[in-house]
């Protein structure tokens, strides 16, 4: 019953004691929402290099060994170059060049490294097309799915053969970042909480470092004082004929510690 008849509390005082829902932090932390990067962009897919420009005067892949083409006239020869054929043929040439770099034997077409190289070059070719035609929805979906497939197979290769996985990352110039443990929406409140935690951690660390520096500065003076005091105690005990509790080794050890400390300081100052 007593609770019902509590004396009236000053509202201003209550505001100081209780953090209600309108509580706002005084810290001047500015939160900037990260810009959304589409999953098909190289920054997100992890591709560090783009599709290079390919020499268009090359013959088509199928006719490179043709003997008839060698004896044909210049106009016919031109018709069989990449310049006078669809973009698809240039892509094919690029994919072949890339897979040839990682092939384990002459007829290798289905090993993990060749498949990953093929997908990577296809992704880069499609990324270049998407730059030119951003409204191509069908290609966008295909590209996204291929990027995800490559990531999955890189993950599997990592488990099966870590050394080959690292070699392949270097060869293909791709960055591998695993999925985060949980996918969630980015909200202002949660981000500010994290930033405040980070701020507090840094503040704590800075203060600890400052305190450590202060103690380290005081260390030589303290050790000198300690040596003086111990020597005085030793002398007094000897003169009074009492049991000597302070040994010479103890004082020498502190002197050595002091010398080491001074030497260390000289080295750090030189740097």
């Amino acid at each position: 019953m007593e609770k019902l008849f509590l004396p009236p509390v000053d509202k201003r005082l209550l505001g100081l004691l209780v953090r209600n829902y309108a509580f706002k932090s005084d810290l001047k932390i500015k939160w900037v929402r990260p810009e959304k990067i589409p999953s098909i962009k190289p920054e997100k897919s992890g591709d560090l290099s783009q599709m290079p420009s390919i020499d268009k005067s090359q013959y088509l892949l199928e006719f490179r060994r043709s003997k008839e083409l060698e004896t044909a006239n210049d106009l016919v020869k031109k018709l069989f170059t990449l310049e006078f054929n669809p973009q698809k043929c240039t892509q094919k040439t690029y994919i072949k060049d890339q897979t040839d770099k990682v092939k384990s034997h002459q007829l290798d077409t289905e090993s993990q490294e060749v498949r990953l190289a093929r997908w990577t070059s296809q992704i880069r070719a499609w990324q270049e097309i998407m730059e030119r035609f951003p409204r191509n929805k069908v290609l966008k979906v295909c590209l996204k799915e291929l990027i995800e497939k490559r990531k999955k197979h890189l993950k599997l290769l990592r488990k099966e053969d870590y050394k080959k996985f690292e070699w392949l990352l270097e060869q293909l110039d791709v960055v591998f970042k695993p999925h985060p443990p949980k996918y969630h929406w980015i909200t202002r409140k949660e981000s500010l909480t994290k930033l405040t935690d980070k701020y507090c951690e840094n503040l704590k660390q800075d203060r600890l470092d400052a305190l450590r520096m202060k103690f380290e500065d005081e260390q030589p003076a303290f050790l000198e004082e300690k040596i003086r005091t111990l020597e005085f105690i030793q002398k007094e005990q000897e003169s009074c004929g009492a049991e000597v509790t302070v040994t010479r080794e103890e004082i020498d050890a502190i002197k050595k510690q002091l010398e080491e400390l001074k030497a260390k300081r000289v080295v750090t100052e030189d740097y």
Partner: peptide
């Protein structure tokens, strides 16, 4: 000829640490 595991750590392979969703642009 392959070097021991870990030569791509923090260069192209970031799987030795947990990743997070970017929440702040600083």
């Amino acid at each position: 000829k392959a070097p021991p595991r870990g030569w791509q750590e923090d260069k192209k392979d970031f799987s030795h640490r947990e990743t997070y969703i970017k929440y702040h642009e600083d």
